[in-house]
Computed example of a mutant assay.
Amino acid sequence: MTAEDRAKNIKVLIFDVDGVLTDGQIFVVPNSEGHGIEVKGFAAHDGLGISLARLAGLRIGIITKRQSQTVAIRANDLKLEFIYQGQSHKMNAINEILAKAGITIDQLAYVGDDIIDLPVMRACGLAIATANAREQVKAVAHFITLNPGGSGAGRDAIDFILTAQGSLEKVIEQYLDESNAAAAAADVGTGNM
């Protein structure tokens, strides 16, 4: 089965965070109490892509091993449906997502970059590796993004799936339609300001 054939069947898309929706760098800035505040950078292309994916009917989420307020804020801004932080064994979260979404694992796509993502990528319907992924991850991927994590890899994954499903151009036009309330409300993040 080709990657395009696998993509046609996808209903839920799950992303790892560090190295996928970010470039993998983690900045820790001390606050006045001597505790660290974690800072990460996210690509706007990925955010708009998530809006397009939602308009196309995909359900979107993240699973990450780290716990981060920065990730929680971005996930809220993007209106992600499935948010799992602090996950050492990501298949536990995947099984919950499958049950909540009422889908089978072949209807789930996952985007990863490092070995912690391998159990999910080996099991899911469409395994996507970022351009910056470790070789072990690229070896199990059905599709590898053109861009690295934090630089549009998430958008590459979404564009690939929506193109295979024949909906990319349609949802772009929906997004651009000024009268579309769903598009107007998409990705209007405040950064919790």
Rank of each mutant, 00 (worst) to 15 (best):
M1N: 06
M1L: 11
T2E: 11
A3W: 10
E4R: 12
D5K: 12
D5Y: 00
D5C: 01
N9I: 08
K11Q: 08
L13V: 15
V20W: 02
D23V: 10
I26S: 06
I26P: 06
G41E: 02
A43L: 01
G47R: 11
G47V: 03
I50V: 14
S51P: 11
L52T: 07
R54V: 09
R54G: 11
I60F: 03
I60V: 15
D77R: 07
L78N: 01
L80E: 06
I83G: 03
I83V: 15
Y84H: 14
G86Y: 07
H89G: 00
K90F: 06
E96T: 10
E96S: 15
K100Y: 01
K100A: 15
A101C: 04
L108H: 11
L108A: 14
G112V: 08
D113S: 05
I116T: 15
L118G: 09
P119Q: 10
L126I: 09
I128H: 03
A131Y: 00
A133I: 12
E135M: 07
V137C: 09
K138N: 09
K138W: 01
H142R: 07
I144W: 02
P148R: 04
G152Q: 01
G152P: 04
I158D: 05
T163N: 15
T163S: 15
S167N: 10
V171T: 14
I172M: 06
Q174W: 02
Q174A: 00
A183G: 10
A184F: 09
A186C: 05
V188Q: 15
G189V: 12
G189M: 05
N192W: 08
